[in-house]
Write a protein that binds this DNA or RNA. Sequence first.
DNA 1: CAGTAGGGATTGTTGAACAATTCCACAAGA
DNA 2: TCTTGTGGAATTGTTCAACAATCCCTACTG
Lengths: 247, 247
Amino acid sequence: MTGTIVEVVIEDSDVPGLEADRGLVSRKSTAERVAGVLRKRIAEGFFLPGGRLSEQDIGNALGVSRNTLREAFRLLTHERLLAHELNRGVFVRIPSIEDVVDIYRVRKIIECAAVRGVTAKPATFARIKEKVDIGDEAARTGNWKDLGTANVWFHQELAALSGSERVNELVGRLTAELRLVFHIMAEPRRFHERYLPRNHEILDRIEAGDGPGAEQLLMKYLEDAEEQLVEAYADRADAARAAVAAD
Amino acid sequence: MTGTIVEVVIEDSDVPGLEADRGLVSRKSTAERVAGVLRKRIAEGFFLPGGRLSEQDIGNALGVSRNTLREAFRLLTHERLLAHELNRGVFVRIPSIEDVVDIYRVRKIIECAAVRGVTAKPATFARIKEKVDIGDEAARTGNWKDLGTANVWFHQELAALSGSERVNELVGRLTAELRLVFHIMAEPRRFHERYLPRNHEILDRIEAGDGPGAEQLLMKYLEDAEEQLVEAYADRADAARAAVAAD
DNA sequence: CAGTAGGGATTGTTGAACAATTCCACAAGA
DNA sequence: TCTTGTGGAATTGTTCAACAATCCCTACTG
């Protein structure tokens, strides 16, 4: 035990700005890591809405015990990504029309409030512009999947203007839930593409420090998106449910 | 097996308004019931902020296995009522000042948006008035505990004006978290009492269909409450942490 | 007095076991 | 044909016991 030892000295009293990294240091439990894997798989459509997640199969595949896996399931159920039916197991959730409407109801409240409050803080806006540019680039190269995620990020940045940790978390969950909706829809590509110009308009207002103006545009944006989504979604969700039942 | 049998015929295709009762049929798992018990205990102050919840002790006391109990812990951790430290166990959370500020930031967004949208729907307002009256009665009889809960209910009803399931859930969690704050504070009685007249003012505006007016009052209300709370809370939270550390 | 090496207690995770429930196919009856 | 039991197989719900990993505290050493 006399090998080379790299000694790391950390001053215990005054290390400014380091406490924020505490979260990065803290290891995560197995259940949380498993939940992370499943969350990603659900987001990318590997597990489709309505599909059942078998404890045995997934437990074996991931090499974790049933108990640990069940803890992960609980986590995702709480995020509304999975639906838990007693003695039947967990299923990837199929959001209902009411869910879609409610999601947009909350988005209108949250995002509009965040945007309304802007005056002139150039620092924050760079992140928003970045997301708009990514969306443009994705549309130009025809990369529809990236376009969708860029659009999601754009709205998350808008919500982040509120500067609230809880708002960020809430919006993160709402968008994850929306992904389920998009997986059921037929053609998400065209859906997102329509709104690219409006992203620019909103960004312009924000950069001009015109909060209320941006809010007005954003509200119309969300109302239109919701209407279009509900229309296209109505029979799709039923079809998905029927497909699962028939399978 | 030839006793009286009450035969209930259910048409499989067209049973209007029955699907809504689906939730009532579904029983709850043990973990959820355990979480319910713990949630109530935390709310009423049986488990104080900073206290550790031993898996062994509570598992024995409630007669459930460690695995089931751990599932319940996860649930409450996700609601920010418990804090989970790896290999150290779960503790009743001690909200920080930043948490208090952030909670009020979200409350301002949510509650003000809900109130702003009112025009004139007398049906809904009865529930709000009910809560105000309960608060008055509690103050008159000197029942300070009921006064606090009545006040919480009042605000939950305000948020419910948004008509969003997700908003209701979010506000429910925020108020549960606020209860932790109140448990740390010295004198919650006087804190709530000060705001009773303002409840009436806000209710008046709502009943008059004056959404923006009510919003203005509510925003001031929340700003004042936050300021007072932060001021009174600053050293209290540290004291609670120190007390736990010393214990 | 600082640092460190045990040792006890608690949590993290697994595997197995059994009970409870659901699902599915098939037979029986109207 | 359609509905209604009735088995058994499969899956989930829950508990238990065991061990590894980690933390906390004490006592020892320099």
